[in-house]
Design a protein around this nucleic acid. Structure first.
Lengths: 286, 286
DNA sequence: TCAACAATATTATCAGACCAAATAGAGCGC
DNA sequence: GCGCTCTATTTGGTCTGATAATATTGTTGA
């Protein structure tokens, strides 16, 4: 055939759209510090004038930045777009999608979670503040108090692990752990923890971990946390293997390899920090 | 004042826009498996008809999903939107923005990476196949061969680490490591590894790790990998501290703390799989 | 003084058109 | 028949202009 079939093979040539390039430019200006947090960005109509693009393309650019968490934009008179530092929320959303896209098996998820939980415990032992200790003590007490109610116990447990991650003062770790614990939690039948003996034992281990964090004993914290998480994994997977035949809840047949991790893990309104998805849009026209 | 100033304080009430709710709905349908990879999604005009929204809102929804990596959309006759599993690219972008926003987190990033690399080495030692060993041996040899060229060495190094993750047969881990190594690589000045002594030592360690993986000695693999990555982190950060005063390339004063992570981490055409951002848009009107 | 109301700035949305790109298929020459 | 080109059609990409919703600000009257 004609030449250049092998050399210079530039596949699929991604043509950027108008909104994309504007978003790129604005993003660069924001990240370079030229536009600071707080009030920034011209109004849409000013941008239209400056760029000589259409309103639509300008809005697309703003929408992209908004999805990235770089700006928030409000309607109304002193409205417009303000520059923001991205919080973890957007990152978490994308992490969740990423995990979904990988069809990771529950085993894989647990492996990664174990590694990160251990890291969190270690970091917490190293960098905890007094306030962290206070919070962790409270969460531990709450966990003990909830030991008789399976669902309350699971929620408290989730909460406790998140608090440990926070105490490590590693924001990235907090984000990863939030997502992982949530996905695993959603994919795990709560009946697996229906044994009060299991729960009591976990509470004991958690108290030991807390002690290690208080003592700033990073090594003990890591070891104990690793054991705790591994135990939880065994409990969950054992139950899962024993009851594998339960009815799939809604999707008729997730035909991928490992159905356990596939079914239920998207958009649960489980715990805190889920306010973004609440407001029901009751403002469509007739 | 009037009542409800304290109780029922729902602040800032996030009003979702039309495009958002459509995007949510489509996302749910995609993630539930109702829409599968490959051809999917109706055309824009069909969606307009079905939802009785305007073309603009429909396009906003599609643009959101596209930014999330869930769909790709191509113009032209058999064009339209295809469902895709998100690759790491979108996640990489958001991770970079995130660590830009929390300016202290290059350290955090390294912490997480250390934990995951160790896990990868351990998993590789446990679950490697003969093919994995063969590939790892090749990559190790390539690394040795590239020891004299800094850039080639760094690329080979990246490649080697990815191969280890693959050998662990944990899809999630592979994805995470791809993302993390890429972000760290982009944020790290290659000059930091300008010492051939450092490189030679790293090669030696890598050979030891490979030996441990071949022997299925998970513990040794984990330990050695942890040491290797920690050493690399020290090298990078030391260089960073020593050269903190170099001129920032364009922005007059990035007022945040760590300029190293600020300058060069967006849109690098470093290694493979970066064909998406090349095409220069030369199609604006007169 | 202050509460209701009008003016206004700004985003959100709609509507309809036209442009550009990619493919399918007809037509044509060999 | 085979392959090329050219045209028609489908589809996303963009523009224009107008209207609605929303939030702030100023004003006015009790």
């Amino acid at each position: 055939m004609n030449r250049s079939t092998d050399a210079l093979a530039l596949g699929r040539l991604n043509v950027p759209k108008a909104g994309d390039v504007l978003a790129d430019q604005l993003r660069r200006r924001i990240c370079s510090g030229e536009l600071r947090e707080g009030q920034g960005l011209p109004t849409e109509r000013e941008l239209v004038e400056q760029t000589s693009l259409s309103r639509m393309s300008v809005r697309e650019a703003l929408r992209i930045l908004e999805a990235e968490g770089l700006i928030v934009t409000r309607p109304g008179r002193n409205g417009g777009s303000q520059v923001r530092r991205p919080t973890g929320d957007a990152l978490i959303r994308h992490l969740e999608l990423f995990i979904w896209g990988r069809h990771a098996s529950l085993d894989d998820l647990h492996d990664v979670r174990e590694a990160l939980e251990a890291l969190a415990a270690e970091g917490a032992a190293r960098r905890r503040t007094e306030a962290d200790v206070k919070e962790l003590a409270e969460k531990t007490a709450a966990l003990e108090a909830a030991v008789d109610d399976v669902d309350a116990y699971l929620a408290a447990n989730l909460d406790w692990h998140k608090a440990v991650a926070r105490a490590s003062h590693n924001e990235l770790l907090v984000g990863f752990m939030n997502v992982l614990t949530r996905v695993i939690h959603d994919a795990t039948a709560s009946e697996a923890f229906d044994s009060s003996q299991v729960r009591a034992s976990t509470v004991r281990v958690h108290r030991d971990i807390l002690a290690a964090i208080v003592d700033r004993d990073a090594d003990a914290a890591r070891r104990r946390m690793a054991r705790d998480v591994a135990a939880a994994r065994r409990v969950a997977l054992n139950w899962d293997h024993a009851h594998r035949d339960r009815a799939p809840q809604s999707a008729p047949e997730p035909p991928r390899a490992r159905p356990a991790a596939e079914t239920a893990h998207h958009y649960r309104s489980a715990d805190k920090a889920d306010a973004t998805r609440n407001a029901r849009g009751t403002r469509k026209r007739t």
